[in-house]
Design a binder for these strands. Structure first.
Lengths: 219, 219
DNA sequence: CTCTTTGCGTACCGTACGGTACGGTTCTGC
DNA sequence: GCAGAACCGTACCGTACGGTACGCAAAGAG
């Protein structure tokens, strides 16, 4: 999936470099550190150019989100034949990736920015962030569990609901806690493993489920 | 649990009224609407009094969180004899309460505020919010599931981990989505019910578990 | 070589904020 | 009824932001 034909602004290399600096400033000092003057100074450009390229400050923020999203393209998995172990591996990989993404500096900074703006801009940035940043990873997971269902390894009616269950098991309240400033987990892999265990207990079809239930709750 | 003896600032009725106005301003217009001048005007007090009472703007924000937390006291459940049905009812009640609290205007506004500040103040507000706002509700749930374990209705090793599982099943990514400006759920009760079903499937001891597993995943 | 575009650097403007100072008014203790 | 504190309303200050204007250098087009 490359050029989504329409709806892609796409920026020049120079503009990308400026957006990179903007992200750096945002990560380092939060929203208040991302001033037009400061960005012009950091990126060695003029404020006038900023306004010419991005319109106004909101346009700059939107461009930052679009730019960051354009960097993270999810690699579509080839449709290999799924086994129970393979499904578990892929689910755990997804869980680790998800935790890693959510804990990333830039992700946290952009989410904080969008949350802070959501009161005043009608959640425009929030929508953008969910569209560009999350739909990709959502699709990857939903495709995976639907593949698991077709292979007879998972059971559920509503793939969306099942995915939300998986998401909740993986993330719990960690994302909000990190947005509030708490440090992340010590061991993402361990959390991923336990979450996938629980998910397979709920939605897996293997008779191993029963054993896993004991193992999961019991230890 | 009444007066925590120490560490409670406690404000005068007049100051509480001012804080109420501050919360109103914050809910209506976000952080940028919460200016000292605006608050003084809305609350019919002088800026000088604001600074006398709360020190500076950060002190005001902290006071708002403390005040809001002081309004929400969790009602400790009496330690009645638990049955499976009773446990499920209490868990569902907790889940509905949690969803309702998280979706509340004031809660969302304060969380947005703390998230926005977390970049620049070393997450002071975030810590405050988690301490005052969440520990109460956390304790209530953990007490409940530990009671369930003592009654032989639940099984787990780490009550904290089990609680986080429950939390994730109830909330998933809903809290962050709402912080970003998305509307809440259409039916909190339905979500609460499904989450508790899943939680009991994972951690319940009833042989019903097996049936529930089918019912849960299959429907 | 010249014209035009692009963009950098800087200076500038209006505004609005956090915080302080002051005169006048109400409330409280005696 | 009086002194002192608490407090309100307003005016004020310094600062820093978003956004605009201008002068000038570099680069591509003809």
């Amino acid at each position: 999936m490359r050029p989504d034909s329409a709806e892609m602004p796409e920026f020049s290399p120079r503009q990308n470099a400026v957006l990179e600096q903007a992200l750096r400033l945002l990560v380092q000092g939060g929203e208040k550190a991302l001033t037009t003057s400061g960005l012009a100074r950091a990126a060695n450009c003029s404020k006038e150019s900023l306004y010419k390229w991005f319109g106004d400050r909101d346009g700059l923020l939107s461009a930052m989100i679009a730019y960051q999203a354009s960097k993270v393209r999810t690699h579509e998995r080839p449709g290999e034949r799924l086994t129970a172990d393979l499904l578990r591996d892929h689910l755990e990989l997804f869980a680790r990736d998800l935790l890693e993404v959510l804990a990333g500096d830039v992700s946290l900074a952009l989410n904080r920015l969008a949350v802070g703006q959501s009161s005043r801009d009608g959640s425009k940035l929030g929508k953008l962030l969910l569209e560009h940043g999350r739909r990709q990873i959502d699709r990857r997971a939903i495709a995976l569990i639907e593949q698991g269902k077709r292979a007879g390894l998972l059971r559920f009616d509503n793939a969306d609901a099942a995915y939300h269950t998986l998401y909740g098991l993986i993330v719990s309240d960690l994302h909000v806690r990190m947005l509030l400033g708490e440090p992340g987990l010590k061991d993402n892999a361990r959390q991923a493993q336990k979450a996938v265990d629980a998910f397979l207990t709920l939605h897996g079809t293997q008779k191993q489920s029963a054993d896993a239930l004991s193992a999961f709750a019991g230890r």
